[in-house]
């Protein structure tokens, strides 16, 4: 544990030094501030932030994660020649990258709300949920970035793959869902589509957040199905498990790739 902490701190410091995170955090905070100031802080603010966070977070996770692996390559090799277990080195490297990113997102999203005193009160949980979802997405996508960057030694190629993965997860996957939905028309396919959504962590986060906002009740019949499916104990359990799987499996896969990699 001690070793991990000793490695994590410099890794995190290195991640923060990149200025990317600071820029991201300040950008988000400024956006939130602007929205709060000029659109009255109503549900519109939250929904706009939701849009931005859901697009930006995975992109940041994938790009920053990929770059960080390559950036830390030499140090990694230096450290691997020391009597340090690879598993610990991986945990430090991963958390050292993912946690600062998650933290930057969470702070960037929450700061303007805190500043305006909106972090207490009955509606506060919405922005907190959004921040938490962003943080979780950062952890998941950073793990994916690690898998990509550890398998593709070429920096440019890794970045290309990361962007392709983002494109699939953020855009094309939903296009596929839409095609299926249109193809099968009015048949009751909510179940299978929900599974398809859960397969994509971006969709999972989006649907969860939509359910949490007023929008869910405005989804009409589909919203009702969602509420009925996901509002039950089984549904919640399934959602929780899906989230847990996303938070644990990709980092574990990345750790395995790291443990077996020939540097």
């Amino acid at each position: 544990m001690n070793t991990i902490l000793r490695l994590l701190v410099p890794a995190a410091r290195e991640a923060v030094r990149g200025r990317w995170l600071l820029g991201l955090m300040i950008g988000l905070a400024l956006l939130g501030e602007l929205l709060l100031r000029f659109s009255g802080g109503g549900p519109t603010t939250l929904v706009s932030l939701l849009d931005v966070a859901l697009i930006l977070t995975p992109l940041a996770g994938l790009v920053i994660g990929t770059m960080q692996v390559h950036h830390a390559r030499e140090v990694t090799e230096l450290l691997l020649a020391q009597p340090i277990a690879r598993g610990r080195l991986f945990i430090a490297l991963y958390l050292g990258t993912a946690l600062p990113l998650a933290l930057a997102l969470v702070i960037g999203l929450l700061a303007p709300f805190a500043w305006h005193g909106l972090l207490v009160g009955p509606d506060a949980w919405r922005i907190v949920a959004l921040a938490a979802a962003s943080g979780a997405l950062a952890l998941v996508t950073t793990a994916f970035a690690f898998i990509i960057a550890l398998r593709a030694d070429d920096r440019v190629r890794a970045l290309g793959i990361a962007l392709a993965v983002w494109l699939v997860a953020a855009v094309l996957w939903d296009g596929l869902i839409l095609l299926i939905a249109l193809g099968l028309g009015a048949r009751p396919i909510e179940g299978p589509l929900l599974v398809m959504l859960a397969i994509n962590p971006l969709d999972l986060a989006r649907v969860l957040l939509l359910l949490g906002t007023d929008a869910a009740a405005l989804l009409g019949y589909t919203g009702a199905v969602l509420q009925r499916t996901l509002g039950t104990d089984v549904g919640r359990l399934a959602l929780g498990s899906a989230l847990l799987l996303w938070l644990t499996v990709p980092p574990m896969v990345a750790a395995r790739v790291f443990a077996r990699k020939d540097f």
Binding site: V171, L178, A181, L182, L197, V207, G223
Partner: peptide, 20 residues
């Protein structure tokens, strides 16, 4: 119009794809 034809497509509300 798409949602009118396949209501379940509503699940994609606020997704980047719909934005595109």
């Amino acid at each position: 119009l798409l949602v009118e034809r396949a209501p379940v497509a509503m699940l994609l509300q606020r997704s980047l794809f719909v934005r595109v």
